[in-house]
Write a protein that binds this DNA or RNA. Structure first.
Length: 835
RNA sequence: GCGAAAGUGGCGGAACUGGCAGACGCGCCGGACUUAGGAUCCGGUGGGGCAACCCAUGAGGGUUCGAAUCCCUCCUUUCGCACCA
């Protein structure tokens, strides 16, 4: 037995990690038999090194998993690797290492780091996305979705670097320039595969309301991302050169149908089909072509940049407003997007900022049709800004006088009757483009046949294995396209020559369903057994960074709905409770290599041990807040464990031989009673803080207080006090299990505990010792603190008042004034209100 | 610009449904043990008077017997969205 913790921690941590493994403590049963708890943390990308963000993420999950296990739940707590993705390919280009080798080595290295932290994972369930036994199911899901029309092919723009001759991912575009050659990124249109997430847009949106286990801000971000917007689609008849109806119509989407009498022109997107009507030899056509060329030439990756100056031209086309018969010019402009709504708008400059700005620039008419709701001063002269809000309609024919909401209803109803309007719900969410012109991802299981067209790979031929020998240069499109042995194949339908799809899937596909695979990770007949998934789902707690609030956390919800409709799962939402932990900061900013302010987990573990490292990440801030790394704070946590060690270990065998106190023992001695009360109150505090509030910093503080109390107690303790020290020590050992599991185990065994601490039932407080016998009740006069009275918590109001009046310090403030009333919270507070 | 969250000692943070503001830790000050202490232990630590008290939870107002907590206005910071019709 080492006498100092600093000499012992490395040995005991390794010892218990080995013991847990040999005893298979964390292996979950195939099917849970009792109450279960699925504790999940976001799986890491195997970059090669763990960083403090990981340590924090996994320490939080581990604390909860261990706690729930001791609470009697059967816990599923798995870990795996999000091991497809661009960095592996970049490393290959830079260093010539094969992505598979690079990835596998990183998994080994990071796996060792994770194991050294002593996290309670069921490693028998480890998965890795880049292994064919995993990604074959990505392909299988793709085929199932293709069958149902949920996977389809379409053309879309991608970021394109003309100099590298390659497609760039968004994160490879820096300020509109290629990350590697610094040339301006343009756009090019490619055929790509899409998942029809929009088919579930409505459900994905509406369910957010009932997802109360998710942080509000994540739900808000998702709601914005989905961007539901209710309005109407209105058909404006298209007129010919002589102003006669052509029989066709331009459909516009609007949420402000009530403003339609104020429409003074229409605007269509630059790629709107209506532009095909402009005669090819006309002046309009020439001006249009020139305009479109200018728009197109612009670099199009505009993320993070200011909106462009609005620009447009009159196309010469004319349409008729079906509500008032007015003839309106059709413009085309850069601020109307083809992807949204119908790609065409009616412009109401008086009541829309963008339309207003555009109308001002080109001198188009601005007509007010909405007056502020409690009528303000009448408008004089031309307005200086658009009036955006709802109000009362003016100059709107039969609808004049109606309020905006009513008008929208009645105008839509009338338009529907006449056949030129329909209700329309529009989402900002677009279908999920999953094609990546990359090597290190899941091959898309499709074959192109000259005779049969686009043909899915038959299920029995899965997986379509990623070939190993692929030249990676970073230029020239999909690497797989250059591997003849991969590309050339047979058409599964006609047997003729076929070519494989050479794009791979977005890696977000991998992480959209991995948590189901954990339930049944070695199944080679289906992605997982639905019965097993039913038993383990939903995920009781999902811990991860806020960075995934939209993409991953929407995609995985989408996948669950697809899986549900395939009959594989029986739930609508996969994650019941979501915890987004804050970042780990150093010097006020996120740790990053470029800032040189990183803290290496290995270094911390080596110097202080896994327990201290974990303890600090839990103690220094509540999980959802950012955590400022502070070496002094780490030392404080280390000292705490040292003090635990020093208090119990030197006399551990004596304590182990002592009996535990009987329920009433110690009641007759103030210091013993005080200690026992502290023990049981601490049990209660720690339990409720973890369970009800998911706060992990306050339980650690409570344990520190308990230790302080125990130290005070032991200062003048003798042999007869050993039972009480044993009670503190054993309980402290168990309460430490979620936070410092190795010290917990060592303490437990040393003090005579049987078996593994992690397998013990979580302690329950004794009712006898939970409550104080004497409490200090604060006494206020007119709400100001004037004294305290010492009494049993059950003291009556009358007794409390008379005792308070007897207190000289209180009495001073009562002198000479009548008591108007008293407010008494039994055992907690007395407030005397004077007249 | 729109939306959300948050502002508490020198610092990280406590304070559960309005009820003793500052738990716990860091830092700092003093003491003990020491050749020594950047080890350990003990005590102190919001500010002002150093006693009774007074002032303090971003600022100002309000509700209440009582407000860090609820309401209003403003300020600051962080995050998200940003031509989405």
């Amino acid at each position: 037995m080492q006498t100092e913790y600093r000499d012992a921690f490395d040995d005991i941590e390794r010892k218990w990690q080995e013991r847990w493994k040999v005893d298979r403590v964390f292996e979950a049963p195939r099917l849970p038999s009792g109450r279960r708890f699925y504790c999940l943390e976001m799986l890491p990308y195997p970059s090669g090194r763990l960083h403090m963000g990981h340590v924090r993420n996994y320490s939080i999950g581990d604390a909860v998993a261990r706690f729930q296990g001791m609470r009697g739940r059967q816990v599923l707590h798995p870990m795996g690797w999000d091991s497809f993705g661009l960095p592996a390919e970049n490393a290959a280009i830079k260093h010539g290492t094969h992505p598979a080798q690079w990835t596998n080595e990183n998994i080994v290295a990071m796996g060792a780091q994770l194991r050294r932290l002593g996290l309670s994972y069921d490693w028998t369930r480890e998965i890795a996305a880049h292994r064919p036994d995993y990604y074959r199911w990505n392909q299988w899901f793709f085929l199932k979705m293709f069958e149902r029309g949920l996977a389809y092919r379409s053309r879309r723009f991608v970021n394109w670097c003309g100099s590298c001759q390659t497609v760039l991912a968004n994160e490879q575009v820096e300020n509109g320039r290629c990350w590697r050659c610094d040339s301006i990124v343009g756009r090019t249109e490619l055929d790509q595969w899409f998942f029809k997430i929009t088919a579930y847009a409505s459900e994905l949106d509406s369910e957010l309301d009932s997802m109360t286990g998710w942080p509000e801000r994540v739900r808000v971000m998702q709601r914005n991302w989905i961007g539901k917007s209710e309005g109407a689609a209105i058909r404006f008849p298209i007129l010919d050169g002589e102003g006669r109806p052509t029989g066709d119509a331009l459909e516009v989407f609007t949420t402000r149908l009530d403003t339609i009498f104020g429409a003074t022109f229409c605007v269509v997107a630059a790629r709107h089909p209506i532009l095909g009507r402009i005669p090819s030899d006309s002046g309009s056509r020439r001006r249009l072509d020139e305009f479109l060329r200018r728009i197109d030439a612009r670099d199009v990756t505009r993320a993070g940049m200011e909106p462009e100056e609005k620009e447009g031209i009159d196309t010469g086309l004319r349409v008729r407003n079906p509500y008032n018969g007015e003839v309106l010019p059709v413009w085309t402009a850069n601020f109307v997007l083809m992807e949204y709504g119908t790609g065409a708008i009616m412009a109401v400059p008086a009541h829309d900022e963008r339309d207003f700005e555009f109308a001002r620039k080109y001198g188009l008419p601005i007509r007010t049709v909405i007056a502020p709701a409690p009528p303000a001063l009448p408008e004089v002269g031309s307005p200086s800004a658009a009036m955006i809000g709802d109000g009362v309609l003016v100059a709107s024919g039969p609808y004049t006088g109606q309020d905006s909401a009513t008008a929208r209803q009645s105008m839509l109803g009338d338009g529907e009757k006449e056949g030129f309007a329909r209700a329309m719900v529009q989402y900002r969410l677009l279908d999920w483009g999953i094609s990546r012109q990359r090597y290190w991802g899941t091959p898309i299981p499709m074959i192109y046949c000259k005779r049969c067209g686009v043909v899915p790979v038959p299920e029995k031929d899965l997986p379509v294995v990623l070939p190993e020998d692929v030249p990676l240069t970073g230029v020239g499109g999909s690497p797989l396209a250059r591997v003849t042995s991969f590309v050339e194949t047979r058409c599964p339908v006609c047997g003729g020559p076929g070519r494989r799809e050479t794009d791979t899937m977005d890696t977000f596909v991998d992480s959209s369903w991995y948590f189901y695979r954990y339930c049944d990770p070695r199944n080679d007949r289906s992605p997982f057994d639905p019965e097993v998934a039913r038993a383990w789902f939903p995920i009781d707690l999902y811990v991860g960074g806020i960075t995934h609030a939209t993409l991953h956390l929407i995609y995985c919800r989408f996948f669950t709905k697809v899986l549900r409709d395939l009959g594989l799962v029986a739930l609508d939402e996969p994650v019941k409770n979501l915890l987004c932990q804050g970042m780990v900061l150093k010097g006020g900013t996120a740790m990053s290599k470029s800032k040189g302010n990183t803290v290496d987990p290995d270094d911390m573990v080596q110097r202080y041990g896994a327990d201290t490292t974990r303890l600090f990440t839990l103690f220094a801030a509540p999980p959802e807040k950012d955590l400022e790394w502070n070496e002094k704070g780490v030392e404080g946590c280390f000292r705490f464990l040292e003090r635990v060690w020093r208090l119990f270990m030197p006399r551990a065998s004596e304590i182990a031989r002592a009996p535990l106190p009987a329920e009433e023992d110690g009641a007759d001695q103030a210091r013993r009673a005080r200690l026992r009360r502290r023990v049981h109150q601490t049990i209660e505090r720690v339990t409720t803080d973890i369970e009800r509030r998911l706060h992990l910093n306050t339980p650690v503080a409570a344990l520190m207080e308990l230790l302080n109390e125990a130290q005070d107690f032991s200062r003048d303790a003798d042999g007869a006090d050993l039972p009480y020290l044993k009670e503190v020590g054993l309980n402290l050992a168990l309460l430490l299990q979620p936070f410092a599991p190795h010290v917990s185990e060592e303490l437990w065994t040393s003090l005579g505990g049987q078996g593994n601490a992690v397998r013990q039932a979580w302690p329950a407080p004794l009712a006898r010792w939970r409550r104080e016998e004497q409490v200090e009740i604060p006494v206020q006069v007119n709400g100001r603190l004037r004294g305290h009275l010492l009494a049993a918590p059950s003291i009556s109001e009358a007794e409390a008042l008379s005792q308070a009046q007897g207190d000289a310090r209180v009495a001073v403030h009562l002198r000479g004034r009548p008591i108007r009333k008293t407010i008494y919270l039994p055992g907690k507070l007395l407030n005397i209100v004077l007249g």
